[in-house]
Nucleic acid binder design. Sequence first.
DNA 1: AAAAAATATTGAACGTGTTCATTTTTTGAG
DNA 2: CTCAAAAAATGAACACGTTCAATATTTTTT
Lengths: 207, 207
Amino acid sequence: MLGLRAQKKADKNRRILEAATTLFHKVGYDAARIEDIAEMAGVSVGTFYNYYKNKGDMLMATVSMEVEEVLAAGNGIIAQNHDDVGAALAELIGTYYAHSLTYLSKEMWRTAMSLSIGQPETPFSKRYTALDYRLSEQVRDLFAALQARGIIRQDVDCDAMGELIFNNVNMMFIEFVKNEDMDVDGLQAEVARQNAPVALLVSNVAH
Amino acid sequence: MLGLRAQKKADKNRRILEAATTLFHKVGYDAARIEDIAEMAGVSVGTFYNYYKNKGDMLMATVSMEVEEVLAAGNGIIAQNHDDVGAALAELIGTYYAHSLTYLSKEMWRTAMSLSIGQPETPFSKRYTALDYRLSEQVRDLFAALQARGIIRQDVDCDAMGELIFNNVNMMFIEFVKNEDMDVDGLQAEVARQNAPVALLVSNVAH
DNA sequence: AAAAAATATTGAACGTGTTCATTTTTTGAG
DNA sequence: CTCAAAAAATGAACACGTTCAATATTTTTT
């Protein structure tokens, strides 16, 4: 059984995370003041800092939850045994992008990415980077699965290819959140266009 | 002839930029206080803000100068009429990376990239994004030049391919500045490995 | 059960980026 | 040359993230 101290700790952790998520959504990251988050969670400002290293760390915690969901969805796609490289890629990447704005606004993504670059040593930044790595791994896994089933030529370096494709996906997502005018469909179309020549070249057919 | 007002303005602008660059290099971005920059430039804090929107904008100004230099160097590479896709790419990208740490530290790059994502509407962020676009364009130009000389297969979409390659270059650079343990050689090697399969596939030879 | 040790909470104080009402300087018209 | 209007400079005041010495609570020891 959990001691009183551990119990309270878990409860406060949950309340702070909840309050922060709510406020980030309602008023945005910048406008959500630590004082407000603390008050909504029923703790003092000092206590907030006992639970999270700083404000950015708090945001990264909420973002991480989102990425975990996307990862889970991605696993479902890979299991589908596609027989076309372009279509398989489009579906996996499409899932990433489609989920992206359900919980987080562009502003929140911008702030999160901005923080993960600006303060890479922070705990949740490291966690975010680790999640990013798993997404990249998922793309590589898809390539490997397609190659194993003979859809992709045997002489292609799937790891290199997967990293390349994923880094482009990631960079395009950054461009997307930087530009308020761009919508998800536009993003999907652009990336599909970029992937097309690669999909064609690696496919195991005469040309 | 410039009026007294415009003359003073240009002079102050130069002094502020100079002071900021010096301090960013000497003590890093975070530790360089606006008050110190203003004092070194011989103006008040308020005046600093008449010339630059905020501290980040100031950094972006110094970073932009650096990127301009890299762009110029890149143009020299394209003019060299390479006859191998992998080698040409390696040289162009190698130039980007090799120049990267001559004027700016990893910390400064992190901060700059962090800002360009976090505050995309700021004037110098826009300028930075524009410069990034020109770098991407340069890679596309290289591909187009190679294709025009028959080094690259005619059925390859060079624009799509160039964007893909450049976005990977960019993303890998972000990874590089996030990780203090990674050196330029390691970065070059990784990117070369990622580019290899693409270079092979697009090359105009039987395989 | 009392005392001591370990752990957690608190909020006032601090540092620094940013703003803005006031003052100073420059300009150009009369 | 004078003066009113425009432009620029100023620095004190403000906002907000963060720290930390003091206080309170929980656990462990005797």
